[in-house]
Design a protein around this nucleic acid. Structure first.
Lengths: 231, 231
DNA sequence: TCTTAATAAATTGTCGACAATTTTGTTGTT
DNA sequence: AACAACAAAATTGTCGACAATTTATTAAGA
């Protein structure tokens, strides 16, 4: 089970496999954001029938990576500054609550597990500031563990099954791979402490600030890029 | 545009229509919660092909009303006490944040609109404590307006497009139609006031308490029912 | 030359049939 | 009677073809 999706099940049907391929292609920008999706073209490309492709498209729509309009067709979602802002505000709400619930529902075993992970991260700086998209698992791993520890299936499905696909897409396409390295590590540490202390209120507050800081960090990078482009 | 779904577009394709029919049937319990869905059977029942039915099923899956497993089939979601609890906790997080964003992004026009709605509700007690599923629009209307006023498309899609289908299902199937009548009206009033004052922090806190109170109210009703059944 | 209308091409929606998988029912053995 | 292996039935997944709708192209008129 890959680190970047703890809730996923092994792909059994061909639609599953095509879904995963397209998912990666969209996240990495190989299929361009905002571009129209031609069913006949992609069906031929993946060597499958249109029915199967449409099945895959439906799943991509479920995780908000494509949008479909009746009789018009499908488009890959666009990556806009506003969309990123909205996404992080939503994350703040959901992961904040997940963190509060984690403080309530986490098992002792999961606490040990998270502390062990933190220990590993402290010893391998490469994990603290992942350089590429595939190496950012340190941060994602932390967030996934917190979310799963909430033991709230509704929150888990929403965040891991839907939001995080978009999060990865934005991170990848905007080149925001290293989420504030050392600072993030400290913040992770404090959050785990609050959870271990069963202090739900503090845990939620810290997680919300952690995500808000991450959002502001990314926003500033974007505005720099925009500034450069105008020069 | 029906009151109970402000983000919905008119159904154009037959899959759309079947989706809406099934949606209502599931929410109202005409298709039993937790029951298996036979594709051949339902396709015959609705006089459509299996492809079209599957398209409808995909949309039902998108709003979490059915769950599908590969090679096994689809089932209507179950209505469990835990599921209800999880749903309301998620609502608390999302609608709380939506309320905070509304305090930031709402237009003067929308403020007037909400105050006018409140005025109408105060004069028609029937709207304050809706008796049946179809008459609970007073409460739903309020929540929808707040969510839309957030002007955050991500939040709007998640809450209106997904969560609220489940909310209506639980309300309908557990017979929790009147959401604490008069108390709710006062709470609505205070929330709108906070939004109009542009006090995002207070607005979020009030909305969270409002939903938490609603959750606790429903929980107590459920435990009473369980108690009765054991007698 | 620019709009508008009509027509042709392409794309999406729907259908029925076949293949693959799961479930059910049966048979045979312990 | 209980269990296992096998066979039959039913269900889901996939395919290609046709219908309905949208988009592109052409023709006509102002």
């Amino acid at each position: 089970m890959p680190l970047n999706n703890p809730t996923r099940t092994a792909p059994v049907t061909t639609a599953d496999k095509v879904f995963e391929q397209m998912q990666h292609a969209i996240v990495e920008g190989k299929i361009l954001a905002g571009s129209k999706i031609s069913e006949p073209e992609l069906a031929k490309q993946y060597q499958i029938s249109r029915s199967t492709l449409r099945e895959a498209l439906n799943r991509l729509e479920k995780c908000h990576l494509v949008e479909r309009k009746a009789n018009i067709g499908s488009r890959v979602v666009e990556c806009t500054t506003q969309g990123l802002l909205e996404l992080y505000i939503t994350r703040e709400a959901l992961e904040g609550m997940a963190c509060r619930q984690a403080a309530i529902n986490i098992t002792d075993e999961e606490i040990s597990d998270m502390q062990a992970m933190l220990q590993r991260h402290s010893q391998s700086p490469a994990l603290q500031d992942g350089v590429s998209y595939y190496q950012e698992q340190g941060d994602l791993d932390f967030h996934y563990k917190v979310i799963l520890a909430s033991h709230n299936q509704q929150l888990i499905n929403l965040i891991c099954g839907q939001l995080y696909h978009l999060v990865r897409m934005y991170r990848c396409q905007f080149g925001m791979n290293s989420p504030r390295a050392s600072r993030a590590f400290d913040e992770h540490s404090h959050i785990i402490q609050a959870i271990a202390d069963r202090d739900g209120e503090l845990a939620e507050m810290l997680m919300r600030r952690h995500i808000a800081a991450s959002r502001i960090n990314i926003e500033s990078k974007i505005s720099k890029i925009k500034f450069q482009n105008k020069q």
